[in-house]
Design a binder for these strands. Structure first.
Length: 545
DNA sequence: CAAACAATAT
DNA sequence: AATATTGTTT
């Protein structure tokens, strides 16, 4: 069965649980990559009919743009796939207009490059005031906003509010500090995602989906079929809960019953927890305090028509599991570089990342060199913040790693291109519609196995969570495999992080390299006038109306 | 076959 | 209400 996910022009994808090349409908709807970090298979524009023929490899580099009118128009991205590349950039819609905000120019620099690598249209700035100015001046010029959480004066959250509520744009928050409370605050205040620095290319490839999802959600809103009325209960006691499933099974057999089913409510409508709905839910939970939040009370607060207590209970169950896991990972001791002991006097071994954030940062750090061990070891947020204070921006660990990953990506891509030009005939490009699903699936898994151990850029220290999706840990026996995978990932990172950091020191002359590039990139976009704080308040007030 | 998710059972 | 299990979908 071919599943179709439609958004205006129509985006079509095959289904889920594949290895790397596909993203399922559900994953798209939730604006994140697929179960296994998949990428969209095919993406094209135009009406249904025009899409009848799948993309062919002949049309290359169709530049897709997003019109200034605000209407999203994603031109078909070239569907061809170069097998030698693991993360083919072709599948990202080009020209997505991203507003990138982070007060660390080094990070902006690296991140900007990464985003442009995805062929997005990036505008960068280092101050919230600039960002707001840009948003206001060029209304409808941006599709999505990415911002660091910890900007001066709660700027990240202000920006979230203004861009999200005021301008209706999806906002992605970023930070190296991913304390649960921070993530929660971001998400409950409307962030559509929270990316934990260091950020990998793969995490950027799919951010456009947030734009799509936002519009999708606007379209469907929340419509439950209203079959929870008196019919069932007034049936004279004949209808019992346990019968429902049987009835459904029988419905396919008897025509008469089928008719009834059709009329009364086509398949027992399921609640779709949209972003909005979920946010209402979270809001209610927060209001009650998490430990006092019970389905009934939540339901009362939410005031959503048609929503049942069972619906809420089910969601709450998932939500709790999600939170448990989130806090579990965040409190996990994190490995740090092996040379830390030399810098800060803490005796060898490993230490835990400090979770406290700004206030715990020591003042004397500003005297140390940018690449000093302590600057690296202090945790991304800490380093960034201390440099902010001293006036001269430094490179935090997260930025370093981002840069490294970006470099690695570039190298790999270069290698891939080379290989491609060398052996053109040997390329394994499948005819678009040629092979059967079965065959293609088999091929995919074979490829995945082959490359699995090579790709260092994919190593991630944390799992990315995006709402409203929770991993399904219900059903104990079914989840074992997944947890194993998670563990595998973490230990893989543990083994490699030291190597990464040592590589940084040796291979890259970071301060010089980035400073020059940052300065250059900066001049082009940083010209917006500085805007005083009251202007922000003004805008805030405006957006509240 | 896996994974996500919501309904349903206990 | 909390948790476990099942059904359905992708």
């Amino acid at each position: 069965m071919k599943v179709v996910f439609e958004f205006r022009e129509g985006i079509e994808t095959e289904h889920c649980w594949t290895n790397e090349e596909e993203t399922c409908k559900r994953c798209i709807a939730h604006g994140r990559s697929c179960c296994n970090n998949g990428v969209l298979v095919s993406l094209y524009e135009g009406s249904r009919e025009e899409n009848a023929s799948p993309p062919t490899s002949t049309r290359n580099s169709t530049s897709s743009t997003i019109e200034t009118s605000g209407k999203m128009s994603i031109t078909r991205v070239d569907g061809t796939m170069i097998p030698s590349m693991k993360h083919p950039p072709q599948f990202s819609p080009k020209g997505l207009r991203v507003l990138l905000v982070d007060d660390n120019p080094f990070f902006v620099d690296v991140m900007g490059r990464m985003l442009r690598e995805c062929e997005y249209n990036v505008t960068m700035c280092t101050r919230v005031s600039q960002a707001i100015y840009l948003l206001k001046k060029n209304r409808g010029t941006f599709d999505i906003v990415m911002s660091e959480v910890f900007l001066p004066e709660e700027g990240g959250f202000q920006l979230l509010e203004i861009a999200g509520l005021g301008f209706g744009l999806p906002v992605i928050l970023m930070s190296a500090m991913a304390e649960t409370s921070v993530v929660m605050r971001g998400v409950t205040h409307g962030a559509c995602d929270f990316l934990i620095k260091p950020i990998r290319m793969e995490e950027l490839r799919n951010i456009w989906q947030h734009v799509i999802r936002r519009r999708q959600d606007c379209k469907i809103s929340f419509n439950l079929l209203d079959d929870s009325g008196g019919d069932e209960s007034s049936d004279g006691g004949g209808t019992v809960d346990s019968k429902k499933r049987k009835d459904k099974a029988q419905a396919q057999e008897s025509d008469g019953r089928k008719m009834i089913e059709d009329i009364s409510g086509l398949k027992k409508a399921r609640v779709h927890w949209t972003v909005q709905l979920h946010q209402q839910f979270v809001k209610a939970v927060n209001q009650l305090q998490i430990d006092k939040a019970v389905p009934k009370k939540i339901l009362d607060i939410m005031k959503v028509q048609g929503l049942t207590r069972e619906n809420v209970a089910s969601h709450l169950q998932k939500y709790r599991l999600y939170l448990r896991r989130l806090s579990g990972i965040n409190s996990e001791p994190r490995p740090v570089a092996s040379f830390q002991a030399a810098g800060n006097g803490i005796a060898g071994g490993s230490m835990q990342i400090r979770q406290g954030g700004r206030k715990q940062i020591q003042e004397n750090e500003e005297h140390q060199s940018l690449l000093s061990p302590s600057a690296l070891n202090n945790g991304g947020a800490g380093a960034a913040i201390s440099s902010r204070r001293s006036g001269s921006p430094g490179i935090d660990k997260a930025t370093l790693i981002s840069l490294h990953q970006y470099r690695a990506y570039q190298q790999k891509q270069a290698a891939g291109d080379e290989a491609q030009t060398i052996s053109k005939g040997g390329l394994d490009i499948e005819p678009a519609g040629g092979l059967s699903r079965k065959t293609r699936k088999r091929k995919r898994s074979a490829a995945a196995v082959k490359t699995e151990h090579v790709d260092t850029t994919r190593i991630s220290t944390k799992t990315q969570y995006s709402f409203p999706s929770f991993a399904d840990s219900t059903g104990k026996s079914r989840v074992t495999a997944r947890e194993g995978k998670e563990q595998e990932k973490i230990s893989l990172w543990n083994d490699t992080e030291d190597l990464f950091l040592e590589k940084f020191a040796h291979e890259y002359d970071l301060p010089n390299l980035s400073a020059a590039a940052a300065a250059q990139d900066f001049m082009s976009t940083a010209s917006a006038p500085d805007i005083s704080d009251y202007f922000i308040d003004d805008l805030l007030a405006q957006s509240h109306k």
